[in-house]
């Protein structure tokens, strides 16, 4: 297990390096620059500005400088939010984005797995059809439809939850965003769990467990569930990426001061350092969640960790 873990972990750093490098150059290749929009800017001042931010240097020099900064934990100054460094901007928004993202994944597993298992155990019953019907809806409906719908129902009609906005230390502002974000993931996990548990319950080793005279609960929890969760765990990596990108949309639907807005604004403004900072942070989050999913998979399935 230790060797397997070290192998996985050592793969993350080079991947992140490649992502950062590729993004750095691709962003610079896009036409336009951070100071192009300010039409009134006289050429000399624009040149001065570019010199101040190091944009007059050859690309490779800029790259070297950026990477050195990154190693020291410095994402550089924002070109547009002139009073803030990128580090400050992201540090402001990230806690909210991370909270709703992680909470959504957590909620999705916590609800999706039992729902799927229930559907599998009560196969072809009303609860199975109900759960699977809900799952189809949850996957098909986009979150920018569900989000406003929830806001309408729970915020305006029922008046139990705030429609939008955020106040620090007030989790009720996060409930609707988290639920909206989690819904498709719950649906997908429920379907995965149902299918995989049904398959495992038909497998030979579950027949062996029953032949041993074990109780149905023991057969389910000790013999069937762990192998049945493998597909769910493999999905957790992509699910986190999905939730993280989804949170960018959800944040604007519910008016949350997360990091989502920086990616869009940063891209429109050619705010190179801000966009890069977002890519580095979100790239790292995605890699990290995939790493955790991998380690979990290795723990669940001995065949993987020994190969």
């Amino acid at each position: 297990m230790l060797r397997y873990a070290l192998q996985r972990i050592s793969g993350v750093i080079p991947t992140l390096f490649v992502i950062i490098t590729a993004s750095f150059f691709v962003i610079r290749l896009a036409p336009g620059g951070p100071f192009d929009e300010e039409q009134t800017l006289p050429p000399e001042i624009k040149a001065n500005l570019e010199a101040a931010y190091g944009l007059d240097q050859p690309l490779l020099v800029q790259y070297g400088r950026y990477m050195r900064g990154l190693l020291a934990g410095d994402f550089g100054p924002s070109f547009k939010f002139k009073d803030f460094s990128v580090t400050e901007l992201i540090a402001q928004g990230l806690p909210i984005s991370l909270t709703i993202g992680l909470a959504a994944v957590f909620v999705a597993v916590l609800i999706g797995v039992p729902l799927g298992a229930l559907a599998a155990l009560r196969r072809n019953s009303a609860s199975d059809y109900g759960i699977m019907g809900f799952a189809v809806l949850g996957i098909a409906l986009p979150s920018f439809v569900i989000g406003p719908l929830f806001a309408l129902i729970f915020g305006l009609y029922l008046g139990v939850l705030p429609v939008a906005g955020y106040e620090t230390g007030q989790p009720k502002y996060l409930i609707l965003p988290v639920v909206t974000l989690a819904l498709p993931v719950i649906a997908y996990i429920a379907r995965l769990t149902r299918g995989s548990l049904l398959e495992v319950l038909r497998s030979n080793f579950v027949r062996t467990a029953r032949a041993k005279g074990l109780s149905p609960l023991r057969v389910l929890f000790r013999h069937a569930l762990r192998p049945a969760l493998l597909p769910v765990v493999s999905y957790l990596g992509p699910a986190t990426a999905f939730v993280v990108t989804g949170s960018l949309v959800i944040e604007s639907v519910f008016g949350l001061p997360g990091t989502g807005r920086y990616l869009v604004q940063g891209a429109i403004n050619r705010d190179y350092t801000l966009v890069m900072g977002m890519i580095v942070v979100y790239g790292a989050i995605t890699l990290l969640s995939n790493l955790i999913a991998d380690l979990l998979y290795g723990w669940l399935d001995p065949r993987v960790r020994y190969d």
């Binding site: 497998s203 030979n204 080793f205 062996t208 000790r222 013999h223 762990r226 192998p227 001995p302």
Partner: peptide, 16 residues
């Protein structure tokens, strides 16, 4: 009353 099966490759729980 005990029973053993035809396919030993798949009849044991892989994770135990």
């Amino acid at each position: 009353l005990a029973m053993i099966f035809q396919d030993p490759m798949t009849s044991l729980a892989p994770h135990i």
